[in-house]
Amino acid sequence: MTLSILVLTLVTLQRLGELVLAHRNTARLKARGAEEVGAGHYPVVVAMHAAWLAGLWLLAWDKPAQVGWLLVFLVLQALRIWVIASLGERWTTRIIILPDAPLVRRGPYRHLSHPNYVVVVGEIAVLPLAFGLPEFAVLFTILNAIVLTIRIRAEAQALRGAPM
């Protein structure tokens, strides 16, 4: 197995595992009275991420991986784990608001409002660059910026009423 196939396989498995975790956390939060906000744009988020990963499989499976960019991607994965661990049961891929729950202020959330989105922006650009696909990185960075603009607005509006 080449390094490129190994990396793409691991990223795919990671994303699938995160979807399982997100689904579980969403169900638990909803059972506690949480409500989803901005569900209308969620299929676009999923489609964009699926297209990014499918495009990488199509274009990068046989390309040599550039170790420097892969190391940057590994750092981003460590940050991703920190984000997920900091949110704990409140981490999900959807915008789920738990009434009367204070905003999370630990981990990277002490420093940034949206650290997960910072990580995602980095991942969307860095992994294609690791495979020598700068045009792909630019295209999906632009698509991701459009999606995140919609998502962050919806999330910010939903969180305005959250207790501090």
Rank of each mutant, 00 (worst) to 15 (best):
108 P>Q: 05
70 L>K: 01
103 L>Y: 06
36 E>W: 03
89 E>G: 15
129 L>R: 03
105 R>A: 13
112 L>I: 10
55 G>I: 06
9 T>K: 03
116 N>R: 02
20 V>G: 08
99 P>W: 00
117 Y>T: 04
101 A>V: 08
61 W>Y: 14
27 A>S: 15
110 R>H: 05
20 V>N: 04
54 A>Q: 09
38 G>F: 01
110 R>P: 06
61 W>A: 15
26 T>F: 05
42 Y>N: 05
41 H>E: 12
114 H>R: 04
94 R>Q: 12
116 N>D: 01
79 L>T: 06
126 V>H: 07
38 G>H: 01
81 I>L: 15
11 V>D: 07
122 G>S: 10
28 R>Q: 15
18 E>L: 07
102 P>A: 14
8 L>T: 04
135 E>T: 11
55 G>V: 02
59 L>Q: 13
93 T>L: 10
62 D>V: 05
71 L>H: 03
97 I>V: 15
121 V>A: 14
84 I>H: 00
128 P>C: 00
42 Y>C: 02
95 I>F: 03
117 Y>L: 06
127 L>G: 09
125 A>L: 14
70 L>A: 05
113 S>Q: 12
105 R>G: 00
118 V>P: 02
53 L>A: 00
94 R>M: 04
130 A>P: 02
70 L>V: 03
19 L>V: 08
20 V>L: 15
128 P>W: 01
102 P>F: 04
97 I>L: 07
61 W>Q: 14
131 F>I: 06
34 A>C: 08
118 V>S: 12
36 E>L: 08
51 A>V: 13
125 A>F: 09
63 K>T: 08
24 R>H: 13
21 L>C: 08
96 I>N: 05
81 I>W: 15
128 P>L: 01
133 L>G: 03
81 I>M: 13
21 L>R: 12
58 L>F: 10
78 A>P: 00
78 A>H: 09
111 H>N: 06
134 P>I: 08
69 W>N: 05
37 V>E: 11
106 R>M: 10
119 V>S: 04
126 V>L: 04
87 L>F: 01
65 A>F: 02
77 Q>F: 07
75 V>F: 12
70 L>S: 07
108 P>W: 02
78 A>T: 10
131 F>C: 02
111 H>R: 14
77 Q>Y: 01
64 P>I: 09
127 L>E: 07
25 N>G: 11
65 A>N: 04
59 L>H: 08
18 E>W: 00
134 P>H: 13
113 S>C: 07
9 T>E: 02
104 V>A: 05
107 G>K: 07
11 V>N: 05
30 K>P: 09
73 F>Q: 12
95 I>R: 04
8 L>S: 04
21 L>M: 07
128 P>R: 00
49 H>S: 04
86 S>E: 04
119 V>F: 05
98 L>Y: 02
65 A>C: 10
102 P>Q: 08
63 K>F: 07
93 T>N: 14
120 V>F: 00
60 A>R: 00
67 V>G: 05
60 A>E: 05
67 V>Y: 11
22 A>V: 08
80 R>P: 01
57 W>H: 03
44 V>G: 11
28 R>W: 14
135 E>K: 10
128 P>S: 02
132 G>M: 09
6 L>A: 15
39 A>W: 15
90 R>K: 04
20 V>A: 14
114 H>C: 01
82 W>F: 12
45 V>L: 15
134 P>K: 11
54 A>L: 15
83 V>G: 10
13 L>F: 12
63 K>Q: 15
104 V>G: 00
66 Q>H: 14
40 G>M: 10
41 H>R: 11
43 P>R: 03
56 L>H: 06
